[in-house]
Simulated scan of single mutants.
Amino acid sequence: MITREKSEKLKTDRGVSIRFNANDIASGIQLAFTFKGILCRETVGFTISQNGLNAASNLLGEIKNKIAKGTFFYADYFPKSKKLKLFGGAVTGATVKDYVDRYIENAEERGLAPSTITGYKKSRNGLKPLWLVEVTELDQLMLVNFVKASSGKVKAKTISNRLSVLRSALDDAIIDKLIIQNPVAGFKISKHIKVESNVNARKQHNAVTPFSPNEIEKIVGACEGTVKAIIQFCNATGVRSSEWVALKKQDVCLISLEVTIYEAVVEKQTKGTKTMSGRRSIPISREVAELLEEEMNMHDSDYVFLNSKGEHWNQDSFRKHQWSKVLKKAGVKYRYPYQLRHTFATRNISEGINLWKLTKLMGHKSPQQLYQHYGNFIDAYEKKSKRGNAA
């Protein structure tokens, strides 16, 4: 234990001092230096002795030397310092994983949606071949090799998502002045691998394969009970799977014959719709209203639909254990349940619904999304209308 009085016998160089507590007992050694025009004071963990003070002086000289050369990274020496908010957390030899991890941690602190965080983490896992590459060494040749190696395993869209996360993460490395340019900025994977278009020559969106009326009839006929009610409800309203599992009794009005979508279940968490346009009211027929009423009268839960165990549905479980069995029994080619939403959209388009109205029913911001997914159906209806008017 060294008191203030005893410390007077120790020699300290400029910029090195001994800190004391309220009882005048030495508590640590502090360095003082100027970095980027800001006076910095940091405590170092050397023993409070002449040898410790000498080591602190040597460390301070090393820091000042690196500052003069422009090679000083604050986090290298003081990784837990509050000053990192000013100077960034860059360290010598920082890797791609260091920055991607930091980007995800920041996203969590900002309270981004769980589904977004999950997507970031999946992209981080996909970037594993680049994890140990130092950020200062990453170049576009490495990116080209990464893209080509990944192309045989995953779709171009997945690769693009991974690079998008990497690009955003490395923007912080620029802020930290670790790199001058982001190697991912402006990088186009289409220059290095074949990228399949989502729309074919007939303006058909490859992801849109709606069920025909005959298929819907077979599907409905191949199920019963709550599963049948869910499928009929989705076919009649075009709601997303994340929305029907979150539907509550208070969201259903059997008098005005409409349901209102307020929430969705994403990554097992119930939350409000992603956008304001996602919150919407959808008219239902008397038949659908009766189906919902029957489901609601079966239990005391706040939710409309419950599984056979009396529990809240999980959309993935429904798809794997119910939906797939129903389609197999119906003899209908397997497609994801989301195709019921596409079926709702294309059916309404073929019946000549106003596109702005359909936009609101589906929870989109504008009809542009309808043109992107259902352009060929819209064109077909317009041609049919012109032929009818000409006749």
Results as ranks from 00 to 15, higher is better:
residue 71 T to V: 10
residue 61 G to L: 13
residue 95 T to D: 07
residue 67 I to G: 01
residue 94 A to C: 01
residue 87 F to Q: 03
residue 80 K to G: 14
residue 53 L to D: 01
residue 63 I to E: 10
residue 57 S to I: 00
residue 100 V to G: 12
residue 97 K to F: 15
residue 56 A to V: 10
residue 66 K to H: 03
residue 86 L to C: 01
residue 71 T to A: 10
residue 57 S to A: 10
residue 47 T to C: 05
residue 80 K to P: 03
residue 81 S to C: 10
residue 90 A to W: 03
residue 72 F to T: 08
residue 59 L to M: 14
residue 99 Y to K: 09
residue 48 I to C: 12
residue 86 L to S: 12
residue 100 V to P: 04
residue 75 A to K: 10
residue 95 T to A: 07
residue 89 G to I: 14
residue 45 G to K: 14
residue 84 L to A: 13
residue 85 K to G: 08
residue 88 G to E: 06
residue 64 K to Y: 04
residue 58 N to C: 12
residue 88 G to H: 13
residue 92 T to Y: 11
residue 52 G to Y: 00
residue 49 S to L: 01
residue 98 D to S: 06
residue 60 L to N: 09
residue 51 N to D: 06
residue 93 G to Y: 09
residue 89 G to T: 12
residue 77 Y to S: 13
residue 50 Q to S: 04
residue 90 A to C: 13
residue 65 N to Q: 14
residue 95 T to Q: 08
residue 78 F to H: 14
residue 75 A to Y: 06
residue 80 K to W: 13
residue 94 A to Y: 02
residue 87 F to H: 05
residue 55 A to D: 08
residue 52 G to C: 06
residue 60 L to I: 13
residue 92 T to R: 07
residue 97 K to C: 06
residue 83 K to Y: 14
residue 100 V to E: 10
residue 54 N to P: 05
residue 94 A to F: 00
residue 91 V to H: 11
residue 93 G to N: 12
residue 59 L to F: 09
residue 44 V to I: 14
residue 67 I to M: 04
residue 93 G to F: 09
residue 43 T to G: 02
residue 92 T to L: 09
residue 86 L to M: 13
residue 85 K to H: 02
residue 61 G to C: 07
residue 68 A to G: 04
residue 51 N to R: 09
residue 81 S to L: 04
residue 86 L to Q: 05
residue 55 A to G: 01
residue 45 G to H: 06
residue 61 G to R: 13
residue 80 K to E: 15
residue 52 G to M: 02
residue 65 N to D: 11
residue 86 L to G: 00
residue 72 F to S: 09
residue 91 V to P: 02
residue 82 K to F: 00
residue 84 L to Y: 15
residue 47 T to Q: 15
residue 47 T to G: 01
residue 64 K to T: 01
residue 56 A to R: 05
residue 75 A to C: 09
residue 53 L to F: 12
residue 55 A to C: 10
residue 51 N to Q: 04
residue 87 F to K: 03
residue 52 G to L: 02
residue 88 G to D: 08
residue 44 V to P: 15
residue 63 I to A: 05
residue 86 L to I: 06
residue 69 K to G: 00
residue 84 L to C: 11
residue 54 N to M: 04
residue 63 I to F: 12
residue 95 T to S: 09
residue 66 K to T: 02
residue 93 G to T: 00
residue 90 A to Q: 08
residue 87 F to A: 04
residue 62 E to R: 14
residue 82 K to Y: 01
residue 55 A to L: 15
residue 57 S to G: 05
residue 77 Y to W: 15
residue 87 F to L: 04
residue 69 K to M: 10
residue 56 A to T: 03
residue 75 A to E: 00
residue 64 K to G: 02
residue 64 K to P: 02
residue 95 T to V: 01
residue 77 Y to I: 09
residue 81 S to K: 06
residue 97 K to A: 15
residue 92 T to E: 12
residue 81 S to F: 09
residue 91 V to A: 05
residue 67 I to T: 10
residue 73 F to C: 05
residue 63 I to L: 11
residue 56 A to N: 01
